[in-house]
Structure formats: structure tokens, C-alpha cells
Design a protein around this nucleic acid. Sequence first.
DNA 1: TCAAAAGTGTTCTCCCTACACCCATGG
DNA 2: CCATGGGTGTAGGGAGAACACTTTTGA
Lengths: 232, 232
Amino acid sequence: MKKEKGEFTYPYPRPSVTTDCVIFGYDGKDLKVLLVQRGIPPFKGMWAFPGGYLQMDETAEEGARRELLEETGLVPSYIEQFHTFSEVGRDPRGRVITIAYLALLNISEVHGGDDAAKADWFSVKDIPQLAFDHDMILRVAMKTLRERIHFEPVGFELLPDVFTMPQLQHLYESILGVRFDRRNFAAKMLHLDILEDTGDRPAGASSRVPVTYRFNKEKYDLLKAKGFRLEF
Amino acid sequence: MKKEKGEFTYPYPRPSVTTDCVIFGYDGKDLKVLLVQRGIPPFKGMWAFPGGYLQMDETAEEGARRELLEETGLVPSYIEQFHTFSEVGRDPRGRVITIAYLALLNISEVHGGDDAAKADWFSVKDIPQLAFDHDMILRVAMKTLRERIHFEPVGFELLPDVFTMPQLQHLYESILGVRFDRRNFAAKMLHLDILEDTGDRPAGASSRVPVTYRFNKEKYDLLKAKGFRLEF
DNA sequence: TCAAAAGTGTTCTCCCTACACCCATGG
DNA sequence: CCATGGGTGTAGGGAGAACACTTTTGA
């Protein structure tokens, strides 16, 4: 491997390696993903997940976080590698392999005036045509998210610090695509013993004001260490 | 990207991309993995998972299968990508990213006289020191296998076509590292309705001859299509 | 005023778990 | 003859699922 005139030469051909980041948010109504509009070919003008070339001195996760920050200004509260896509023809520029990450973010923390001129949240129910094989990447990301939320408390990453039971239920319903009975959902969730009542409900408030909860991560970590298996 | 004198030049540096394959087998007693002894530096003489450089005209899974076949002569009955390892210093030869696969094989089908001179099965309870970061790859592979067997009928890939309930139970116990009550295990497993009794038990045979079963994949696929979720 | 959403308890069923004894084989 | 391993059933507890009515708010 030698460097000449800014070029890099190897005895065998090498694929390019990129990262892509599927970042989910929840606005209280729909599950959303962040897309950026491509400013350069190929697929110029089309929407795609934030991502880019992996640098030689960073791990894939560092690369995914860097690209996300550069292109959208966001720092996710959760990030996880979920699949590497390596179809031979997936990028018209040549052989490009992408390591894909799933990230979660509490949208309510997103302040206006993002760094990204061309980034926007789209409901997963209404996704535009995507560049490259990003439609497949989204399908796999959604499948992974559904699997995760069955057994890990990742849902709380998408909610504000303090939330109501109906909010939490709607989030689960949005992700899993099913409906739960309100009473059963609340009973099951409270029975896990990982939520704490904030007690912030105004004393004289009517029954229409929902009780608010907070996720107790310490309690969850303790239970998990004891071999407890969350399941939903 | 231009080709000169057998060399390949790019405007930016690129990592090498390899695949590695953690292939599990079960001999009726222990869960095993196949390792190959490295014949060249680095880590010459040490054991490692079969794998090698990804070629430009093959997907990662094709590359993993090819390397496995070349180095061990084996064709797995199940293969799944589980993680891509990208630590900057994981390979002393330079920046190498490896896409790791988990594979399963019914050992009883392995005929003597493999292609591989230096391949051997090792009990997961007794693994030698491994080359590169392959000890971490093994840990992640084991974790993935445990997760899989909770919810997918992958255990049958490790058993002969026809097997007994105690065999199946011991396999589950080997993978999950727990003990089950015989009666409860059999009841739960049979209740899933994905096994069929082979009926091959000799009519007059004593109760010491175990009843044999066969995995009914058609039934499982049918149940799965109906939204049934296997769980163990 | 009407529709939509939130609060609240009970019952039934099913699955998981714990548990003991007998028989046959092989060493 | 003894140790090992395999076959077999039941009872109790706990969690999931089904289910209706009242109240409040906002359109």
C-alpha cells in the first residue's frame, strides 16, 4: 500500500465502505425517519439516509455518528449496527458496501435550525422513493426495531423524559403495527416495574389529565442483571 | 479507479473487507465450533475462523460460503450475517473490516476426509487462543445463537433429521447454558406442534428406546405465516 | 352535541413450573 | 445390583386476554 500524488494503490481491488444511519423519531402520532436530500449524483435530488464513506481511523459506529452529526446535526440517544449490505450492484459508482445503523432519538429534543439544509422527518407510512437500495435498508431497519422493542426498553429513547401511558402505548402500536387493550397494556407495563409515577399530576385535576411516568433505567439495569427478561 | 501492472488505485484509501464464518455443530454432547489453523502470518499456527478476502463480484454471504467451502469443504444448512467488526487495530496487516457470519451444520453429515488439512471442531467450553479479535467474534456469535434459538427453530439444523427428545433437550441446554425439567421440556416442545413422531419405535421395544421425532418445517412455516411466534 | 380519548377491575383460561415413581439397560 | 437415563401426569399459581361504562374535552 503506497501513497502517490494523493492516490492509494493496492495489489488487489477493494470495495468502498460506507455507513448509513436509519434514525427513528416519534412525534406522538407517527413513527418517523430522518432522510436527507442528495445534492450530488447519483440519485441527485432523491432522498436517502444520512451516511458516507468510512474513514481509515474510525470504527464503523464512529463513522455513522460522524456522518449523522455532519449531515443533520443530531446526536442519537441510541445507536446499533443492524446489517451490512453488500449486493454487488447496489451502488452505480462501483462496488460499495454499507454498514447500516439503527438510531433512536427523542424528537422533542430537536431544536429548530438544524445544520442540515435538506434533512426532513418522514412518517414511515409515507416514505418517498429512496436512493440506492435504501428502501431495503429501511425494511430491515424496521424489522430490527420491531424485534428490539419486544425485548429491550428502546421505546423510551423515542419519548420525552416524562410521558403518559397512552403516549407509550401509541408508540408501541406505531412500531409493532398492532393495537393493545388500554387496561392490559398499562397493567403489563406497570407490572414490569421499570416505570415510576412522576406524581406530577395536579392534585385537583380531572381524570382527563393523564398520569405521567418516567423510565427508571437504574431499576431496569438491576432487574436485567438479575436475569430478568423484558418481553412485550 | 484504474488498473496498472496488477495494481489498483483509488483517490481515497480503502479498508480491506473480509468475511469470517463461525460454524457451529453439535455432537450429541457439546456445542462445537470449527476452527482452522493459520498457515501464514500473522498469527501463523494459531486457530481462527474460516474466512478471507471478499471478492469484487460476490456478495458477503457468497464470500463467506466460498471461503468456508474452500477451507473446510463444508456447506452449512443455515447461514446468517450477524455483525461487522471494524475496530481500527483489529488486524496487524492494516485496516481490515470483517463481515461475520453464523452458520449451523448437522455434524453427523460430515464425512471423514475433509478438504481441510488443518480444520478441527472445538467444544465451545474449551477454545484455544484465537487469532485477531476472533475471541470477541465468538462471544458475539454465541450471544446471537442464544437469541436465535429462543425464537427460531434453528436448533434442528444442528441435529440429524431424526432425533430424540433428550437429544433436543441437551442441545438446548448446551446452547442456553441452563437445565430444563424433562417433562416440561417435552410438553412445551410437543405443544408447539412442529415435531412429528417418526413412529419408528419398534413395536415391542422397551421404554428404554427413545421415541424419535422429525422437525416438520412445512408445519412451522404454516404456523409462522399465521403470525405464530415460537418462543423458548 | 357528538365524537374521541382516558380512567378504572374482574374473570377466565392457558401456559409455565414444580414435583416422584417406575422400568430397562448396561456396566 | 446399582447407577443411569428415559418414560409418564397432576396440581397450583401467575400472566395474558377479553370485556363496559363513565367522564372530559375539543371540534
